[in-house]
């Protein structure tokens, strides 16, 4: 026991003496660096550098992780903002398109000799979309039966038929199998009756076999039906085969693509206060 204690004391003294020698050897003499300091620095520096690099790497990973988490949160928020901006942009694009169409419609309405009412197409015949469509203007806006309806480009669309409510009306398209329009071939000035074929096309009937019909020749309204004003473009000829009787049927493609229509113009009466015979007779 005593021996062990003595051994411990001896060890303590040896260690303390060694430390004191170590410390003394490092005390700079006349401000110069001691050899021991240089040796220790040379030996320890790589370890210290490695230790600090490890610590920096670990803390770097830790900091980067939180930075990345922050970046992801910011990215999510920006993604949401972008999504909402995209929706807003699409909505504004749609509104701009609508504005342009309405402007075109108003420009056309100003140039026409008729009072007119711009209307939005709110629906079509569910079973036969080339038969009728519905507009958001009705009797309250002066829309009556037989009022002609034209597209923003001025092409013939059809006429108003019953039923008509105060705020909406039905439009019979010229492609409807029951539609009849007094028409004239623009080139040959030959009259006929434009009939819907029910397949999206029309036929100009009662055209004499002797008349030469050119493909793509325009078909205009003649005004003879007392419904449509004279001179509106109804379509153009796509075929005009010889008939078996005195007359032949000329196949006409409507000028208006109904599927792409969004707005129309309802012609209500002429601007001189008279209800023209060719516009909207009851």
């Amino acid at each position: 026991m005593l021996t062990a204690r003595r051994r411990e004391l001896t060890l303590l003294l040896v260690l303390q003496f060694a430390h004191l020698v170590l410390v003394s050897a490092q005390v700079p003499i006349r401000g110069k660096t001691t050899l021991l300091e240089t040796i220790v620095f040379t030996v320890i520096a790589p370890f210290q550098r490695t230790a600090m690099a490890t610590v920096r790497a670990v803390t770097g990973v830790y900091t980067n992780y939180f930075d990345l988490r922050g970046a992801r949160d910011r990215s999510d928020a920006l993604e949401k903002q972008l999504e909402s901006a995209r929706l807003e942009l699409n909505r504004m694009r749609g509104e701009r398109g609508e504005l342009e169409r309405l402007r075109k419609l108003l420009h056309l309405a100003d140039g026409l000799p008729y009072h007119s009412e711009p209307a939005l197409i709110i629906g079509a015949d569910a079973l036969n979309p080339i038969k009728t469509l519905f507009i958001d203007k009705g009797s309250r806006h002066g829309v009556r039966q037989n009022c002609p309806v034209i597209s923003p480009e001025g092409f013939l669309v059809g006429r108003v038929i019953t039923p008509i409510s105060p705020s909406q009306a039905t439009v019979q398209l010229i492609t409807d199998i029951d539609a009849n329009v007094g028409a004239i071939l623009a080139g040959s000035r030959t009259f006929g009756v434009l009939n819907g074929l029910g397949d999206g096309k029309c036929a100009l009937r009662f055209v004499p076999n002797s008349v030469e019909v050119a493909i793509r020749e325009e078909v205009l309204t003649s005004g003879l039906d007392q419904i449509y004003p004279r001179g509106l473009i109804a379509g153009h000829v796509v075929s005009g085969a010889q008939g078996h009787s005195v007359f032949k049927d000329v196949i006409v493609h409507p000028a208006v693509a109904v599927a792409r229509l969004e707005h129309v113009l309802v012609l209500i009466g002429d601007k001189h206060g008279e209800t023209g015979s060719a516009v909207a007779p009851e």
Partner: peptide
């Protein structure tokens, strides 16, 4: 001491005690 600016042995002297 080796990892600090202290003279080598100063801390070890105290820690040994």
């Amino acid at each position: 001491d080796a990892f600090s600016a202290q003279l080598l042995g100063v801390s070890s002297l105290g820690k040994t005690i």
